[in-house]
Design a protein around this nucleic acid. Structure first.
Lengths: 193, 193
DNA sequence: AATTAAATATAACAACTGTTATGATAAATT
DNA sequence: AATTTATCATAACAGTTGTTATATTTAATT
């Protein structure tokens, strides 16, 4: 077993504790217990908790990137844009887990400007991928020319983030299909008339 | 000074600490220090921390309700719907504060199903107001008849929630005006063709 | 003015936290 | 096989936490 693989194991144990018990109850000891060992392992692979927390946070962006790249390969045109944006929607268990960890970190970043800046960095990178896709679609005249890709990327991400949160905060929530329809409808509004 | 007013003072002090230092660093002692007194005050007005946290959370929904009612009174038609939904957008300092506290609580609720259910309760009440407004607009034929108010309310709230989060997680974020345009554009899409 | 109640202060409690140092064990290298 | 290194376990440290009990002060009531 690789050293970086072991770091990932620790991080994944942290994820499970976060999802199950909440970020503030995710102590070094809780993580160690989750992977059935002692805190010696945790401290051996991470200098301190902040480094561990930051690593686990980066895994969120990492996983989202993988999901997006997978979506890029499968489709084309506006459908590809929809597929990319669907990476953020909690339509399967993995994406639900990502969402929960992401929300936990976001709440944790309130009052911690450095951590919030880290969130912004990740979000900015994901935004760049969307911008690039919008530019491509615009070149192919598959979306209107009066659309500003930089602005529209924010709106699109806002929509999928909001739809994702819906599954957490609403008891009468949208189904996966209804989420897809809402996203599709918005993207259709970008098409030339 | 009323007893319930004093409870509000404690809650507001908690809000300030949450916004400034984060929810997990909002201890009883930190709250007491924020209002320049000792923990005796805090424990006198709240049985325990959970009760205080819950009270502070309810203040989020309370303030949002006030903002929405204010918006209802001022406008009419689709503009009124936009005004109501704008209550959630962090366009002034009060709403930015509400957003931060709300996000902090939401992240804190991950892994705490009881607290998440409380979030859902609040969100559900706000959703009802939007549903009612959509039904009214539909009766007046100001929005299309094929729109399902229950579903559309979720989409609209998802959009404004997402736009709100944009101001937190994006460094290249939308301006208040761009947020308003995005919301207006979506609502315009609900009009009869 | 005396008494009761409310409001606030102080202090101590046990539980938990991240960090660190130090042993012990396993793996890898020579 | 000997030695070094990586891995993991254990334990102790000081600091913080929510809670609780008990004073002390202020306000209200009689």
């Amino acid at each position: 077993m690789n050293q970086s693989d072991r770091r990932l194991e620790v991080s994944e144990a942290a994820w499970r504790v976060i999802v199950r018990e909440g970020l503030d109850r995710t102590s070094m000891r809780a993580i160690a217990q989750e992977m059935s060992c002692t805190t010696g392992v945790v401290t051996h692979y991470f200098r301190n908790k902040q480094e561990l927390i930051l690593f686990a946070l980066h895994q969120v962006a990492e996983r989202l990137h993988v999901l997006m790249e997978r979506a890029v390969a499968e489709q084309s045109g506006c459908d590809r844009l929809v597929a990319m944006l669907s990476s953020f929607l909690p339509i399967d268990q993995e994406r639900q887990e990502i969402l929960r960890v992401w929300v936990a970190f976001l709440g944790y970043a309130v009052g911690r400007e450095a951590l919030m800046a880290d969130h912004q960095q990740s979000a900015g990178e994901l935004r760049q991928v969307i911008i690039q896709e919008l530019v491509t679609l615009q070149t192919q005249k598959m979306i209107r020319s009066d659309i500003n890709p930089e602005i529209e990327s924010n709106v699109l991400l806002a929509l999928v983030n909001g739809l994702s949160l819906d599954t957490l905060i609403q008891s009468q929530r949208l189904s996966a299909k209804q989420q897809a329809i809402a996203l599709q409808r918005h993207v259709n509004g970008l098409r030339p008339s």
